[in-house]
Amino acid sequence: MPPKIATDLVLSAQDIHKSFGAQEVLKGITLGARNHDVISILGTSGSGKSTFLRCLNCLEVPNSGSVAVHGEEIVFRNGRIGDQRQIERLRRHLGMVFQQFNLWTHRTVLENVMEGPVQVKRMPKAEARDLAEGLLARVGLADRMGHYPAMLSGGQQQRVAIARALAMEPDVILFDEPTSALDPELVGEVLKVMQDLAAEGRTMIVVTHEMAFARDVSTEVVFLNEGRIAEQGPPEKLFDHPETEVFARFISKTRRDFA
């Protein structure tokens, strides 16, 4: 029997296991997000951060464990998808922003943002257009709505991707290294938008290598190591008093990188 899920959690994952072939990438991860939480997930390359994030919205199907949004729970057994509809419903509550933006290149910026509301939520086009225009203005792209993604810089594309996620009015937004594919001078504009979202009280789970963001913006930091949560807690506590050797080494190394 799966453990009872606390009701104040918007999103919770229980004991997620995930293997690729013989390699066990996630070895039982449990994590919950309450409203307004901003959780940063840190970890070395290959520690399973992306895999875990993708398990949350079932882009990867866990071998076992469960994911619940708003108390509606999906339990995984033997890595099989039970009910495709349930998964699609779950995804409507979770926005996702990818490292490589993944904008639909054959649609304009405006169409990219309208696509979800119109095609998934069946919102009338006019209404979706108003919504999309508002969101694009908020991420500073009011003047780029008719452009195709190929005409935008990486930072602009990522801001469109964020607007696209927001258009679904998700309960939680998942970010997978949203600034890692960007040129250094473009990182700031995307982080600024994310910071604003956090300040607004959006619930966010962010896989990142941006230590400053993890430290200053997030309410909770999770450190993954070899498929397990090695350390977890409020950022100021974790960064100033790391409990484990690995995390201490991890932050000292990144500090050196940033120094």
Binding site: E88, R92, F98, N102, L103, E115, R164
Partner: peptide
């Protein structure tokens, strides 16, 4: 990645085929 983005916003398989 574009297929994944469509699945991530909760499109059904038929929608993903038709739209992306």
């Amino acid at each position: 990645g574009e297929i994944e983005a469509a699945r991530a916003i909760g499109m059904t398989r038929a929608r993903v085929l038709a739209r992306v």
